[in-house]
Amino acid sequence: MARRDDNAAYSIVGYLLSGLLFWGGVGWALDKWLGTSFLLLAGLLLGAGAALYLVWLRFGRE
């Protein structure tokens, strides 16, 4: 099943997108609620980091 791994790029983009959208969305909503402005960026960074970690867990480990 080597072919399935060759197409990992699509799953990777999916993970990154949902990580950014979910945690970025949480940050954005908290910003609206608390009246701050830095939580959106924090959420986006957190989401990107978590998604990269997930990608490493799924595709980077031997």
Binding site: L16, L17, A51, L52, F59
Partner: peptide, 14 residues
């Protein structure tokens, strides 16, 4: 390769 791809793609999605 896929980890590098993920790093670069994360910036584009940002």
């Amino acid at each position: 390769a896929f980890l590098g791809f993920a790093m670069a793609e994360a910036l584009a999605l940002f």
